[in-house]
C-alpha cells in the first residue's frame, strides 16, 4: 500500500500533469500550425469580438435557442461540467496535498459542498449514460469509446466519494481514486475529452464566420 501510495502521489502525478500539459499544448499547437498551412481562412475570418460574442451565448445557461429547446440537458450539462471542473480543483483534500508538496494554497470548498458536487457529477454521468442508451438518435451516434469515457470520468468521483465516506475498503478506494484521477488527466488531451480544449476554437470560429462574414447569429 505504501509503495502504491508513493507511486500514485509521486511519479504518476508528474506523468499525468506533464502528459496533460504536453498533450494539450502539443495538440493545440499542431492544430494551429495545420490551420496556418491548410486552413488559412481560419485566421482570416477569426474575430475576437465575434468569437467572444458566440462563446458568451453558449456559456450562459439558456442564452442560446438550442439550450432553451432542451432545458433538461442544459441544466444537467451545466451542473455536470461546473462540478466536474470545480470539485477537483477546489476540494479541500486536494488543496492541502498541493500545499504539503509545494507550499502553495488557494481557496477550497467546504467538505459538504464538495461532497454534494461529487454526487452531482456521478448523477450527471448516470444521466448521460442513460440518455445514450435510451434515446435512439444518441444511441446511434454512440461508440464504445463514449461509454468508456463516461466510466473514465465517473471513476475518480466514485472512488473519491467512497474513500471520503470511509466505507469498506476505503484504503483501496483511496489509491484507486488517485490512479483514476491521474488517468483521466492524462487521457484528457488524447481522447474525446479533448473537446474541452477545442470548444473555444470551434465555437469561436463559428462565431467569427457567422458574425464577421455572414452577419448572422449562431445561437
Amino acid at each position: 500500500m505504501h509503495e502504491l501510495y508513493k507511486l500514485a502521489s509521486g511519479i504518476f502525478v508528474w506523468i499525468a500533469i506533464l502528459g496533460f500539459a504536453a498533450g494539450m499544448i502539443g495538440r493545440l499547437a499542431h492544430l494551429a500550425l495545420t490551420a496556418r498551412k491548410k486552413d488559412p481562412v481560419v485566421y482570416q475570418y477569426f474575430s475576437l469580438y465575434y468569437a467572444l460574442r458566440s462563446m458568451l451565448h453558449w456559456i450562459i445557461p439558456f442564452a442560446s435557442t438550442g439550450m432553451r429547446a432542451h432545458p433538461v440537458i442544459t441544466i444537467a450539462a451545466f451542473v455536470f461540467h461546473i462540478c466536474l471542473i470545480v470539485t477537483p480543483l477546489f476540494a479541500a483534500a486536494h488543496v492541502i496535498l498541493v500545499m504539503e508538496s509545494w507550499n502553495v494554497a488557494w481557496w477550497h470548498l467546504p467538505d459538504p459542498a464538495a461532497d454534494v458536487m461529487t454526487v452531482l457529477v456521478i448523477l450527471g454521468c448516470l444521466f448521460f449514460l442513460i440518455r445514450r442508451i435510451a434515446q435512439e438518435h444518441v444511441r446511434y451516434l454512440s461508440t464504445a469509446g463514449d461509454f468508456v469515457l463516461i466510466a473514465l470520468v465517473a471513476a475518480p468521483f466514485v472512488t473519491g466519494f467512497w474513500t471520503y465516506h470511509q466505507w469498506y475498503g476505503y484504503e483501496t478506494a483511496g489509491i484507486l481514486h488517485m490512479l483514476s484521477g491521474e488517468l483521466m488527466l492524462l487521457c484528457l488531451p488524447f481522447t474525446r475529452l479533448f473537446h474541452m480544449a477545442l470548444w473555444p476554437f470551434t465555437r469561436g470560429y463559428a462565431g467569427s464566420e457567422f458574425g464577421s462574414l455572414r452577419h448572422a447569429r449562431d445561437w
Binding site: A35, D39, T143, F194, L198, W199, Y205
Partner: peptide
C-alpha cells in the same frame, strides 16, 4: 486540415 480534425474530434456525440 485543422477544421476537419477539430470538428471531428470535438463532436461528443451528444445528438443536440
Amino acid at each position: 486540415g485543422a477544421r476537419l480534425r477539430a470538428y471531428t474530434n470535438a463532436c461528443v456525440h451528444c445528438g443536440l
